Amino acid sequence: MIRTCANILFGLALMAVSVPVSANETGSSRVMLSVQEQKNWQAIGRLNVTGIGYCTATAIGPDLILTAAHCVVDKRTGNSVRPDRVHFLAGFRAGTFAAHGQGREIVLMQGYNRSMRTVDRDIAFIRLAAPLPATITPISTGRGVQPELSLHTLSYGLDRAQIPSIERDCRLQSRIGAVIYTSCDGVPGVSGAPVIQMVDGKPVVVAVASAVMARQKAPMLHGTVLAVDAAEHRLEILFRQFEGTDVSMPDPVRDGS
């Protein structure tokens, strides 16, 4: 079991109310996507959880959403929230969105425990009540983080909660088991966000943002992203927990190695 150290402020990503902090104040290297750029990333959206807050999440299949487990766990009970309280807004931007999906079923990685801060298991799937429209192209998964490739993140940070931001070309710093230490910029709201690598010119989700390694606490928590490995073999373990699953896990991207 891997636990976060004391300077990781775990779960702050569920704060749903924006505060007036500018990009310059946080020193963020994330850049807001233009309207045109966002059309290429419609599978990434805001995950709104009624009564709790929001995170970032990614459609990796027509009805399959990948996010961080703590985003869909009630911290008072330690149990996952009712699926119908979860709403995925694909391509969310300033109150508009390309598609809406409501949760039907939630599964957490086996052994995840929010109170114990088991970051290495902080991933979850949400099965939607109905598939997203064909206009939303899911992002593929693959074999996990490849150290030689740069990382990219797309997220709804609390400093820009209404418009997605992208950070290109951050790096893998180190890893301990399934826990990925990155140089990627992090603030509350990035939890659940995809960590992406380009494999043969295609975006592939390789990890999921879990927490922020804080280097600044005011005026807003700010630091680097701690992520969880989302390699295909781990996602298959997660996928098998769905009850009565009648479809297969989406095929991962192969890099020819």
Rank of each mutant, 00 (worst) to 15 (best):
N40Q: 14
L66A: 05
A99R: 00
A90L: 07
P203V: 03
G45A: 09
W41S: 07
L172M: 08
L128P: 00
V225I: 15
P83F: 13
V187H: 09
D185M: 04
L132A: 11
C71N: 04
M213Q: 14
D122E: 01
C184P: 00
A59R: 01
K75N: 12
G192V: 08
A227P: 00
T245S: 10
Y112S: 12
M109Y: 08
V21F: 03
M198S: 14
V145F: 05
F88P: 02
S29A: 15
A98H: 04
V21H: 02
G53M: 02
V187W: 00
H233G: 09
S80K: 14
G53T: 07
I176D: 09
H70L: 08
E105K: 06
R104K: 15
D229G: 01
G45T: 05
A134D: 08
M109C: 05
G27L: 07
H100D: 10
I106M: 09
T26S: 11
S165V: 11
F92M: 08
Y54A: 15
P133A: 10
A214H: 08
A129P: 00
N7D: 11
Q173R: 15
M249Y: 10
I139Y: 11
P252W: 02
D255Q: 02
G144L: 02
P203Q: 11
S34R: 07
I2A: 13
G144C: 06
I176W: 10
V19I: 15
V204L: 03
A129Y: 00
D63L: 12
P133K: 05
L33I: 07
R76I: 13
